[in-house]
Nucleic acid binder design. Sequence first.
DNA 1: TTTTGAGTTGTTCGA
DNA 2: GTCGAACAACTCAAA
Length: 480
Amino acid sequence: MAEGPALLWFRRDLRLNDNPALTAALESGRSVIPVYVLDEQLEGRAIGGAARWWLHGSLQTLADDLEGRGSRLVLRRGDAAEVLARLIEETGATGLFFNALFEPEAAARDAELARQLSKVDSHRFNGTLLAAPGQVLNGSGQPYKVFGPFLRALRSMLPPFMPHPAPGRMLAPGAWPASEPLNSWRLRPTNPDWAIGFRDWRPGEVGAAMRLERFLDEALSAYPTGRDTPGVEGTTRLSPHLHWGELSPRRLYDRALAAAARGTVGETAADKLVSELAWREFAAHMLAANPDLPTIAYNRNFDRFPWRRDPAGLKAWTRGRTGYPIVDAGMRELWATGWMHNRVRMIVASFLVKDLMIDWREGEAWFWDTLVDADQANNAMNWQWVAGSGVDAAPFFRIYNPVTQGERFDTDGRYVRRWVPELARLPDKWLHQPWRAPIEVLDAAGVTLGRNYPPPIIDHGAARERALNALRSLRTGAAA
DNA sequence: TTTTGAGTTGTTCGA
DNA sequence: GTCGAACAACTCAAA
C-alpha cells in the first residue's frame, strides 16, 4: 500500500457512480481527499451565470454524498496548479487522481500540471466521453469532419460498458485540510434572484439519476419524434447533468441499450439516443482538433460574411421580443429556466444569424451565459453549424422559417402559449403569425400588436433573400 | 491518385 | 392538403 493520502480532484465529473478516477484512487489503497478547485478560467473562459448556479447545487450534493460515506469535499479557490501544489504540501499526498477535460486550454493545462506536480504520481482518466478525442479516426488517421462516418466508426468501436457502482464508506485521511464555505463563492444570485424559474432542476447525482429513470420510463420509447416536440417532455433533459458529469455517458448508453435488448423500447429509439450522444462526442472531438472553434469560423470563407451590427435587434432577441412567437417562446424559456428545447435552439439561432444577420459569436456568448448546460464544444459546433460556417454545413438550405417551424413542431401551440402567455387566447391558426390575424381575432384574444406583443422586428421573406445574397457573395471566386 | 457518392435537423414552388 | 423536385456548390470519406 502506498504511503500518504491520494488527492481526488473533482472537475466536471461530479458523481460517485462510474467515476474512473474515484475508482482508481480507492483501488490504490490510500486514504482519499476529495477536492474541488474553483478555477475561474477553467476552460480559458469564465463560467457563465447559469452554469455557476448549477455548479453550486451540484457541489452541495456531492459534498453531502461524500459525507454520507465518511468523507468530505474540500473546496478551494484559485489557480488549479497552485492550489493543488499547496494541498499536496499540507496533506503529504502522494498521488493525484482526476478525470480529463478535453477542451484545448484545459487539456494543455492538465499536461502542464502533471509535469509541475512531479512530487506525486498523477493519474488521468476519461470520465466524460464514450471515446476520448483521438480514438475515433478516419482511414487517413485524421479526425472525422462529417458526422455520419464518425457515428459509424464510434458505434463499431464501443464495447458494452459495465459502469462502476458508487463506493461504500471511503477511507478518510488522519487530518482534513481546511475547506472554504461554498456560500463564500457566491455562485448563486441573490439580489435580484433571476434563478427563481430554475427550481424544477435538481443539480447533482441524485437528480440526474431520477431524471434518467424518468426518461427511460416515460420518454425513450417515443424519443425519435418526441424529442422534436417542444410542447411535451420528449427530450432527455439530461444535458446539464451530462455536462457536469453527474451522469456518466457510459451509464446512459448502457441503460438505453439494455432497454432495447429487453424489448422495453424499440431499437430505433435506442439508436436515436446513441446518435444524439454521439453528437456530443463529435463536438468534443471537433473542438479538440480545432481549438479556435468557439471564436473563428471553421470555413474561413465566412470571414467575409457581412455580419450586421444591430444592438436593438440583439436585445429584442435576448429578451424574447422579436414578434415571432416560437422564437420569443424559446428565448424566454432560456431566460426563465436556464435551458431551451433543442428544436427551438436551432430556430432561434437561425433567426439571429440568418434573419438578423448578427454574428453567431453574439449568440454563442448569450447561450454561454444563460444555459445551465453551456458547453464549449457543443455551443461552438452547433452555432457554427447553424451559421453555415461549420462542418456538415449546407448554408443555402438552412434558413429556418419561424412560422413553418412553429406550425410543424408546436402544432397545438402548447409551447408558445406557455412561454408567451399574452398570445394564449389566439386560435392555433394565427398563433405562430399573429401579425396576419384579422383585427377582430386579435381583439377577441386580447392581443394588441405594438402594445402587449410586438409586431415582427423584421420581415422573414425579405430577410431570407438578404441572407441568401450574403451567402452567395461568399462563393469561392466571388468578389468580396 | 482518382473517382464516386453522400452530406442531421429546410423551404418553396408547382403539379 | 400532399408530393416531388429544385435549390448552389463544395468538401469529405472511402473505394
